[in-house]
Each structure stands twice: as C-alpha cells, then as structure tokens.
Amino acid sequence: MRLNLVLELLDIPGQLIDALEPIGRLGANIVTVIHQRDVKTERGTVPVQITIEGDKDTLDRVITTLENRNIQIMEVDGVLRKEKIRTILIGDIVDKDVKDALNRLNVFEGVKVVDFNLKMSDDPEKSASKIIIEADYGKRKDIMKRIKDVGISKGFLVINEV
C-alpha cells in the first residue's frame, strides 16, 4: 500500500536526510519526495510531501520511528493530524461560568473540547477544571493563547502546558 505524508522539517541542512533515512532502513520504498525550501509554514518550518510504499506493518513502523525522532507528521493521506492540548482553570465555575468558556473555545475552527473534568473545593474559588482540547496539528501556540484570553476574560487563573 501507499501512504502520503506531509512532514514538517526545520529549515536547516541535514533535516531531510534524517527523515528519509529510517524509511529506507525499515524496508519501505520512497516513491516521491517534494521538498520546496522556499515554501514555509507560518512557524518558519518547511513542509515536505513524501509518498512511501510498503506493507501496513512496515508503514506503521515508519510512522512510529519518525515520531520517536521528533519529526513532525502534519498530514497522513490528506487528513490533518490532531493533537491534544491540556489546560487547567482555577476559580469558581458557576460564578465565572465555565460552560460559557467552553462554548467560546468550541467555536474556534479546528478546535474541539474532548474532555472536561472538575475538582470542587469547599471554597468555590479554589475549584479547578481540567479541559482537554483536540486541535489540528500545528496550531498549539495559537490555541493556547486563545484559551488564555478566554480564561482570563472570565476571571480564571489559566494554567497552560509549557
């Protein structure tokens, strides 16, 4: 079978070779590589399209190996990959209306709140809510900023991931 991947590489020498090396070594065929160094993402990285061929096990191993090497895979067969973003809000969930905060996060494009958890305290101001968001790959920084803005505007203390 064939798999189309879009990798996201840093714009420095050697990155592409590092990414291609395990593919051949694990026994997959490299069908095409499209590498345009002048096309950059908003993060300044270079997207590289590659098509590889092999049996399912081999292709799965390739993906795991690339991930272990911290090579970012943005798309698999035309589907944007998702990543999870976790946040904790501290503050009174009723008074500050955590539900409205969630709704305001859900309306952002490519963003979905997939998990919500509460830990109540006798002092409602000390209560904490955990929110897990699934978002299109590569939007982490942007979304974390939005979470912060929404949380702060509602009066919560926002604890984002590093």
Binding site: R86, I88, I90, N117, K119, M120, S121, K126, S127, A128, S129, K130, I132, L157, I159, E161, V162
Partner: peptide, 27 residues
Amino acid sequence: IVGISKITQEAISLARNEGYLIKLIGE
C-alpha cells in the same frame, strides 16, 4: 507575571491525574 499564591491542591491533583505537574515557568 502570574505567581503561585492562587494555586490550589484541586488543580495540582487534576494535573497529576493527567501525568502533569504544575511549575512556575519563565518563558
């Protein structure tokens, strides 16, 4: 600047359930 004086045990334990810790980070 946001400090740690409002960090509660509730928040720390929610974080731990997810495999996370809360730290004061400079960025």
